[in-house]
Simulated scan of single mutants.
Amino acid sequence: MKFLVVLFALVAMVAADCGPMQRLLVKAQWNKVYGTSKVRDDAGHVLWKAIFNQDGETRALFNRVHGDDIYSPEFMAHSARVLGGLDIAISLLDNQAELDAVLAHLKEQHIERGIPDRYFDLFKNALMEFAPSALGRCFIKDAWSSCFDVIANGIKGQ
């Protein structure tokens, strides 16, 4: 019984906001979600399909990188850059000063490209469907949601 109480307390702590425990959890689980180069390509395809399915107009933002064909080398390179930026941000969740610097840089890029803030919601929706498929029951939605919000809110420009 004592074990269950401790277990529930830990689950509640991890499920709260994006505090130190949640940051470490998301950081560790992201390695499983994002994994190796083959998994990374697949992750990009799944995420972008989900984003474009939510809002077809989103593709127009990616004309420069052939958003009409997510398998094109140009779009795959773009996908790798976007997910690479997310990878860096997640890896820095436990280092606030460096995270803030990276997010400020990404924010400038998104402002320059005129990326509306609402697209972060589309990305989050896609990620929140993709991550549990890779993690199964280990996925803790509240931790992922709140930690993604930390990253997205640091990048949003409008």
Results as ranks from 00 to 15, higher is better:
residue 3 F to T: 15
residue 5 V to D: 14
residue 7 L to N: 09
residue 8 F to M: 08
residue 9 A to D: 07
residue 10 L to G: 04
residue 10 L to S: 03
residue 13 M to A: 15
residue 13 M to L: 15
residue 14 V to D: 03
residue 14 V to T: 08
residue 15 A to W: 03
residue 16 A to Y: 12
residue 16 A to F: 09
residue 17 D to V: 08
residue 17 D to N: 09
residue 18 C to S: 04
residue 20 P to H: 10
residue 21 M to Y: 13
residue 22 Q to W: 04
residue 23 R to N: 07
residue 24 L to F: 13
residue 26 V to S: 04
residue 27 K to R: 15
residue 28 A to Q: 15
residue 30 W to C: 05
residue 31 N to Y: 06
residue 31 N to V: 12
residue 32 K to V: 15
residue 33 V to W: 00
residue 34 Y to E: 09
residue 35 G to M: 05
residue 36 T to K: 12
residue 36 T to D: 15
residue 39 V to P: 03
residue 41 D to C: 07
residue 41 D to I: 14
residue 42 D to G: 12
residue 43 A to F: 12
residue 43 A to Y: 02
residue 45 H to V: 07
residue 46 V to N: 08
residue 46 V to M: 11
residue 48 W to G: 00
residue 48 W to V: 06
residue 49 K to W: 08
residue 50 A to V: 05
residue 51 I to E: 04
residue 52 F to C: 03
residue 53 N to V: 08
residue 54 Q to T: 01
residue 54 Q to D: 07
residue 55 D to K: 05
residue 57 E to K: 14
residue 57 E to W: 06
residue 57 E to F: 10
residue 59 R to T: 14
residue 64 R to C: 00
residue 67 G to P: 01
residue 68 D to M: 07
residue 69 D to C: 02
residue 70 I to T: 09
residue 71 Y to A: 14
residue 72 S to L: 04
residue 72 S to I: 06
residue 72 S to K: 05
residue 72 S to R: 05
residue 73 P to E: 14
residue 76 M to F: 07
residue 77 A to V: 05
residue 79 S to T: 11
residue 80 A to V: 06
residue 80 A to D: 10
residue 81 R to F: 00
residue 83 L to E: 03
residue 84 G to Q: 03
residue 84 G to C: 05
residue 85 G to H: 02
residue 85 G to T: 08
residue 86 L to W: 00
residue 92 L to E: 09
residue 93 L to C: 02
residue 93 L to W: 03
residue 94 D to R: 07
residue 95 N to P: 03
residue 96 Q to W: 02
residue 96 Q to R: 09
residue 96 Q to K: 12
residue 96 Q to L: 04
residue 99 L to P: 01
residue 100 D to E: 13
residue 101 A to N: 12
residue 102 V to N: 11
residue 104 A to H: 10
residue 108 E to Y: 08
residue 109 Q to R: 11
residue 109 Q to G: 09
residue 110 H to R: 05
residue 110 H to Y: 02
residue 110 H to C: 09
residue 112 E to Y: 10
residue 113 R to Q: 04
residue 115 I to F: 07
residue 117 D to W: 06
residue 119 Y to D: 14
residue 120 F to R: 06
residue 121 D to M: 10
residue 121 D to I: 10
residue 121 D to P: 01
residue 122 L to D: 11
residue 122 L to S: 11
residue 123 F to M: 14
residue 124 K to I: 00
residue 124 K to G: 02
residue 126 A to C: 03
residue 127 L to N: 01
residue 127 L to R: 03
residue 127 L to P: 05
residue 128 M to N: 01
residue 129 E to I: 11
residue 129 E to F: 09
residue 131 A to E: 00
residue 132 P to M: 04
residue 132 P to T: 04
residue 133 S to H: 12
residue 133 S to T: 12
residue 134 A to K: 14
residue 135 L to P: 00
residue 136 G to E: 06
residue 138 C to G: 10
residue 139 F to C: 05
residue 140 I to G: 01
residue 142 D to S: 15
residue 142 D to R: 08
residue 148 F to Y: 12
residue 148 F to A: 10
residue 148 F to G: 04
residue 148 F to H: 05
residue 150 V to D: 07
residue 150 V to W: 02
residue 152 A to T: 02
residue 152 A to S: 11
residue 155 I to P: 01
residue 155 I to W: 02
residue 155 I to C: 13
residue 155 I to T: 07
residue 156 K to T: 06
residue 158 Q to D: 15
